[in-house]
Structure formats: structure tokens, C-alpha cells
Amino acid sequence: MVPVNYYIALSAILFIIGAMGVLVRRNALIIFMSVELMLNAANVALVAFSSANNSLDGQIFVFFIMTVAAAEVAVGLALIVAIFRSKNSINVDEINMLKG
């Protein structure tokens, strides 16, 4: 018998770790993985709520999030490959054409 709180806390921790990954890593691929981790953290929270409320809607949401994540990964990786082709690097610090 685990309180929902714990799951939410776990979700928050995972989310923050993912956010840290986005902020401190320079490798675009790892940043991308961190984003996936953040999505996962959200999924955990959703499934926990679904269970607590005894309603399946949360799980359906998770299903859709996974689909979107899959699409996002496909496009995102394609983008990274395209960037690598033109810049020969996936260091996000080098992709700084917006510098003012």
C-alpha cells in the first residue's frame, strides 16, 4: 500500500533529473534522451493518478504521449542527423547562429 504522494515525488525527481540533463549536457543526443526521461516522469504521475482514481483515462493519455514521443523521436533524430551533416557536430553550444 503505497500512497500516491510517493509516486508523485518519484515523478518529480525523475523530471528534475531530466531537466538537469537538458541544462548541463552539451551532447544533443543526451539532451534529447533527457527530454524523453521528462516525458516518462510525467507518464508515471499520470498512471499513478489513474490507479488512484480507478479510471482508465490516465492510461489512455499515457498511450497518446508515447505515440507523440515516438513521432518526436523520429523527427528529432532526423533533425540531429541533418544538423550533424551540415555542422559536423552535435554540440549544442556550437549551434549558436542566433547569437545576438
Binding site: M1, V2, P3, V4, N5, Y7, S51, A52
Partner: peptide, 8 residues
């Protein structure tokens, strides 16, 4: 604090 327990 949502302290609901999740049924096992």
C-alpha cells in the same frame, strides 16, 4: 498532500 493509498 494526496495521501490516497493505491490498492495493490
Amino acid at each position: 498532500p494526496v495521501a490516497d493509498l493505491i490498492s495493490n
